[in-house]
């Protein structure tokens, strides 16, 4: 067995086991940690495929941001996970049945999968040459793909505007820091020195 094959089996086993543990572990914090393990395994698979950029993005975005966000949600919101999980055994047979149906359907589709004749000529291997795919993406992102890239940026902007519009409360009587008045404050006028004799009040 080659090293890459061994690595593939290792990562796959890690992914499958930790994905199962995400569902069945009792402690929700453990579930999130197992989820992180799943992400790590998947990024290993991407590296095996030669898509190192995708692997790194998966690490940074999913492990670094999304999983941590999950962790915050789990720890901050008081969700009763036992109650959520109470129907597990009851729904298990139906869930398994649906999973089986989906599996059969997908295998039916993929066993008859015939791509168009022109397919191979259009799909390029991303690892051709000595240009690694991070650089390849960099070469096209602002040139050929500028329209897509900017449109995606607009989508994110709208999401941000939406979040602010729907949650931001405009309270008028909140005390905020006003930097300008702070800067222009004159120490001469702000502080007044008084000489107080002992035994006397002000």
């Amino acid at each position: 067995m080659q090293a890459s094959e061994m690595a593939f089996y290792f990562f796959s086993v890690v992914i499958v086991i930790s994905a199962m543990l995400v569902v069945i572990s009792r402690n929700p914090v453990h579930s999130v940690l197992w989820l992180i393990a799943t992400f790590f395994g998947s990024s290993g698979l991407f590296i095996l495929l030669g898509a190192e950029f995708l692997a790194l993005i998966l690490m940074i975005v999913y492990v670094g941001a999304v999983a941590v966000l999950f962790m915050f949600v789990v720890m901050m919101l008081n969700i009763n996970f036992d109650q959520l999980r109470s129907g597990f055994t009851r729904y298990l047979p139906v869930g398994l049945l649906i999973g089986l149906i989906l599996f059969v359907e997908l295998s039916l589709v993929f066993s008859h999968w015939i791509p168009a004749n022109s397919y191979d000529s259009k799909i390029q291997d991303s690892t051709i040459g000595d240009v690694e795919n991070t650089k390849q993406l960099g070469l096209v992102l602002y040139t050929d793909f500028i329209l897509y890239f900017q449109l995606a940026g607009i989508i994110l902007l709208i999401a941000m505007i939406g979040a602010i519009v729907l949650t931001h409360q405009r309270k008028r009587n909140v005390k905020r820091q006003d930097i300008l008045t702070q800067i222009y404050r004159d120490p001469e006028k702000a502080i007044e020195l008084k000489d107080i004799k002992p035994g006397q009040g002000l």
């Binding site: 589709v109 015939i114 791509p115 168009a116 022109s118 191979d120 000529s121």
Partner: peptide, 26 residues
């Protein structure tokens, strides 16, 4: 996945030359 292209024109050509594949139908 079936035509290898996201361009409408290319998909049109692929369908005309190779017929209506199962993946395209789905």
């Amino acid at each position: 996945g079936s035509t290898g292209s996201i361009e409408f024109k290319e998909i049109f050509i692929a369908i005309s030359s190779d017929g209506f594949l199962l993946g395209i139908m789905a």
